[in-house]
Structure formats: structure tokens, C-alpha cells
């Protein structure tokens, strides 16, 4: 109940307040980070490797704990949440997919509903729906092992698994990074359609500026643990900060977008 009213009054699904994260060695990865993600938006965290994007994701689902500051999830400080319950309400997709290789596709998709003790009928129904949603015919794929899937199919299962318990928040860490360009484009397109239909709050990590522009409602650019700024895709292309230009230039010729400014 308290969460509900907070969600409404606050308007942010996720909010970082003055968050610092230090590595176990004591090196500060970032500090004083303020960032908020509105309900239903897709915020892309864009940056080079080592810029701290993955760390930010893991702070949201408490795979990591902040050294300082507060992270509010649905208006409630992350530290107030039971980490297990919190994670079951947050879908998580990573580049290496991390499907359980000893389980069938069906069982992989069903993992969170089963953890949440759904009835078996409901689990089965949900698995069917999720596989439809990501375009994997149930009859053909349900009984396969992850080893019998292509990279793109694995990632579809990863998305289906993350969405299965209908979590309000979805965290995606370079989910399409390891795919071939054609498959990646397909999945990006489908995912964009899916995201706008499902109205999830999505935090999406990538180092691919095209992907960021294509999928993000807003783009947060990170540079060595510093938040350079948050831009809409249109504003990103017009922004004059050198860090943004460095990325915009990488769009290269052909797109014509670097001439647009």
C-alpha cells in the first residue's frame, strides 16, 4: 500500500540519490551519482567499457550494494527491500544470456513463476504466452536445451524468462551485443515494439550508439563513472559536449546524422 502511494506521488520507478560505488580494492568507480528512471520509459545507459554502466544495473537489483547514497526502487530505498523479493520483481537479461544449460527452454522461462510458487496451470499458460511473445513456437522449442538454440533464439528465451513473472522493471545488460548484425537488428526492432506495448520500466546498457538511439526514450551517457548527461535521442544528436560528439561521430557516414547538427 505504501509502495503504491509512493509510486504515484514520486513518478520515478528508480532513483539514484548521491550514490557512490567503490570497488573492494577501494577505488571509486563513481560517486555522487544522481539518476532517475520514470515509469514506463526505456533509459539507455551508454558508455564505453569500464564506464560503470553494468555496475549501475547491478546496484538496482542489489547484486551490488552502494558504498554511499540511496537507491529508491518504486519510491522505497533499496536497502528496505528483501533482495530476493526485489529481484523477483525485476527482470534481468545479460549478454551471456545465462540460460540454465541443464534445463529445457520451457523450464528456463518458468523459473521465476515457479520460485514465486505459481500453480502449475498458471505457469504452463504463462510459458506459452511468453514464448509467443518472443516469437518462439512452443511446440518446436519448449523441450529444447539452450545448447540446441542459436544465439538469437537464446536471447529470445532470455527475454521471455525475464518477463515471465511480469516484473514492472526490466534490466538489460548488452543483451544483443553478441549477436550477428542481422539478428541483432531483428531483435532490436521486435524489442522496441515489445517495450512500447508492455509499458515496462527498462534500463538498458549498451556501448552501441545506434542501439541507444533506436531503443532509448532517454540516453544517459557515462564516461569513466561520470554521468555526462541525459538526453532524448534528438537532443543527443544535437548535443555539443565532446563526450557526446565522440559517440555521435562513431555513427559514421552514411547515416547522415553527424551532418544533422
Amino acid at each position: 500500500m505504501a509502495e503504491q502511494s509512493n509510486q504515484i506521488s514520486d513518478g520515478n520507478a528508480i532513483e539514484f540519490r548521491e550514490v557512490a560505488y567503490r570497488l573492494p580494492s577501494g577505488v571509486a568507480l563513481f560517486s555522487g551519482l544522481n539518476l532517475s528512471v520514470a515509469h514506463g520509459e526505456t533509459l539507455v545507459l551508454l558508455g564505453r567499457s569500464g564506464s560503470g554502466k553494468t555496475t549501475i544495473l547491478k546496484l538496482i537489483n542489489r547484486l551490488l550494494e552502494p558504498s554511499q547514497g540511496t537507491i529508491l526502487i518504486a519510491g522505497r530505498p533499496g536497502s528496505d527491500w528483501d533482495p530476493i523479493q526485489l529481484r523477483r520483481g525485476i527482470g534481468y537479461v545479460i549478454q551471456d544470456v545465462g540460460l540454465f544449460p541443464h534445463w529445457t527452454v520451457e523450464r528456463n522461462v518458468a523459473v521465476v513463476p515457479r520460485l514465486e510458487n505459481w500453480t502449475e496451470d498458471r505457469v504452463q499458460q504463462r510459458v506459452g504466452e511468453m514464448m509467443d511473445l518472443v516469437g518462439l513456437p512452443h511446440g518446436e522449442f519448449a523441450k529444447r536445451r539452450p545448447a540446441e538454440l542459436s544465439g538469437g533464439q537464446k536471447q529470445r528465451v532470455g527475454v521471455a524468462r525475464a518477463l515471465a513473472a511480469d516484473p514492472p522493471i526490466l534490466l538489460m545488460d548488452e543483451p544483443f551485443g553478441a549477436l550477428d548484425p542481422v539478428t541483432r537488428a531483428d531483435l532490436q526492432r521486435e524489442f522496441r515494439a515489445l517495450a512500447s506495448r508492455l509499458q515496462k520500466t527498462i534500463v538498458f546498457v549498451t556501448h552501441d550508439v545506434r542501439e541507444a538511439l533506436f531503443l532509448g526514450t532517454r540516453i544517459a551517457l557515462l564516461e569513466q563513472g561520470r554521468l555526462v548527461g541525459i538526453y532524448t535521442p534528438a537532443a543527443f544528436l544535437k548535443a555539443s559536449e565532446p563526450e557526446v560528439r565522440a559517440f555521435a561521430v562513431s555513427l559514421g557516414s552514411g547515416s547522415g546524422e553527424d551532418e544533422a547538427m
Binding site: D96, G98, L99, V111
Partner: peptide, 27 residues
């Protein structure tokens, strides 16, 4: 056991015991 698999198991909200019995030990 592949760290990505263990990380996603934790990220899905498995308890440490569930990660051990359902993921690490079978693998």
C-alpha cells in the same frame, strides 16, 4: 560453473540455497 549462469540465477531472485541446489550442484 559458468559465472553468467550463476549471476542470472541470483539476478532472477533465487536464494543462495536455490542457486546451490538448482543450478550449481546439478551443473
Amino acid at each position: 560453473v559458468n559465472p553468467a549462469v550463476v549471476e542470472s540465477a541470483r539476478g532472477m531472485g533465487m536464494t543462495p540455497r536455490q542457486v546451490l541446489w538448482q543450478v550449481q550442484l546439478p551443473l
